[in-house]
Amino acid sequence: MSVDTAPRPVEQAPAPRGRRARLMGRAPQDTPAGLGTYLLLAVTILFSVFPLYWMFVIATSDDEALAKIPPAVVPGNQFLVNLEEVFSLQDVFFAAGLINSFIVSTVVTASVLFFCSLAGFAFAKLRFKGSGWLMLFVVLTLTVPNQLGIVALYIVMGKLGWNGTLLAVIAPGLVTAFGVFYMRQFIVNSVPDELVESARVDGATTMRIYWSMVLPAIRPALAVLGLLTFVATWNDFQWPLITLSGTDFPTSMVAISDLASGNYVIYRRVLAGAFVATIPLLVMLFVGGRQIVRGIMEGAVKS
């Protein structure tokens, strides 16, 4: 049933027969995957991909394709037509949405990387009074769902006069407790204490050490945190909807929800827009998938 390609470990005791018996006692991660495992994984991937593929099918189809039984499963040739409609709609501002999403996600990501690595460095390598308590506070806030303060946040933004502007979307994302936590964990292990000390002996200031020693050493962690932050910010919906809907410059997610509102929803348009707004993330997953996987898995072991 299975195709074993890897060399088998030497067996000691008189082994019972059969594959299952042969594999007993080996940790799963040392056991070569059988055909069944590959098949099940392939099915899982199929389930992951299909909605995205089908999004593309509908985005490239005309209205008739959607009203067919059995449903269309082959892309049509109407993508550009649908796209043009999306971009030229009077009251949706899809192009502005894409640009805004880029601005918001880029600014938030840059800020999270800078401020969180700065604080993470301080917590990991510098001694100061109260650092233990302050770090505990950071860890505790990890679990606080700050969406629950959304009503008050709206009022705060109102007092600042920021509602309906990108500032309202950017400001709450500028730092994250997870970022500080993740950076601290990484810096503790990847920047040797002796290196910091010897730089001090040479008269380097703390900022100098951060800039020319810490930052280069934590590049992999910056990539991971940057990718995760960008994806999360790009996909954020509830708060941007609250503060930006009804304005001329929504984020792309709010613009898609505008496409989908009204008495009669034209799905080929909605999904053409949705597909375009998904492309940047697919590119990121393709290019930085390894880092994203690593970030999620490292986060799990450490917490």
Partner: peptide, 11 residues
């Protein structure tokens, strides 16, 4: 298996 994770929920 992370494809769904990066896909916007809106989409």
């Amino acid at each position: 298996i992370l494809l769904p994770y990066v896909t916007p929920i809106v989409a």
